[in-house]
């Protein structure tokens, strides 16, 4: 897989646009899933994922071939999602539906508090509930948790993707796990 991608990137750098379409095809689902989990909104996730592929293409000559392309691409996508989350208007959050919940918006979440009664937890699809809890983490913890456990990157790779020291990755991962432990212990 890595060898194929390396070769494709080499062709892209030579100006082969079709090779880039292959690269997009190889990564588009993963990058979209990543953006979707970060943003909780399919339309925004599509826009941001597309933007990430465009930026990667435009900047392909700054990509160092000795590095892993997936890591570089995830870095672009992650930065875009974090920028996008920052730019969202504050009221967006209150009106937005929480992904994976049927019309459950932030208001009802606030009303329910962070400790849902046992029955309510059982009524919801477990996976949706878990995703919702991951989404409720601050972006810097959410991204590290997702990259580690859903995309299965190593700690070193996450350090490259996020452009933060390994020690910071660990701290965020520890805090993310702690926060989720509290949220998920009653499930």
């Amino acid at each position: 897989m890595d060898v194929i991608i390396k070769e494709k990137i080499r062709q892209v750098k030579k100006g082969d646009q079709a090779a880039y379409e292959d690269v997009v095809a190889l990564f588009q689902n993963r990058i979209f899933q990543h953006c979707f989990r970060m943003l909780g909104n399919a339309h925004e996730a599509e826009d941001i994922a597309q933007e990430a592929f465009i930026r990667a293409y435009v900047n392909i000559h700054s990509f160092d071939d000795r590095r892993k392309f997936s890591t570089w691409l995830y870095r672009i996508a992650t930065n875009l999602t974090i920028d996008h989350l920052r730019k969202r208007k504050p009221d967006y959050f209150l009106d937005a539906e929480v992904k994976g919940t049927d019309g459950l918006d932030m208001y009802s979440q606030l009303a329910a508090g962070d400790r849902l009664p046992e029955e309510e937890v059982q009524d919801m699809e477990l996976q949706e509930y878990i995703l919702q809890q991951i989404s409720s983490l601050p972006p810097k913890y959410r991204s590290v948790i997702m990259l580690r456990y859903l995309e299965e990157f190593s700690l070193k790779e996450i350090s490259d993707i996020m452009d933060i020291p390994l020690g910071t990755v660990k701290t965020r991962l520890h805090r993310g796990r702690e926060a989720l432990r509290k949220k998920l212990r009653h499930v």
């Binding site: 689902n29 477990l126 991951i134 859903l150 499930v187």
Partner: peptide
């Protein structure tokens, strides 16, 4: 639990 979340 986190790992059990399937692809959307």
């Amino acid at each position: 639990l986190v790992k059990s979340v399937e692809q959307v």
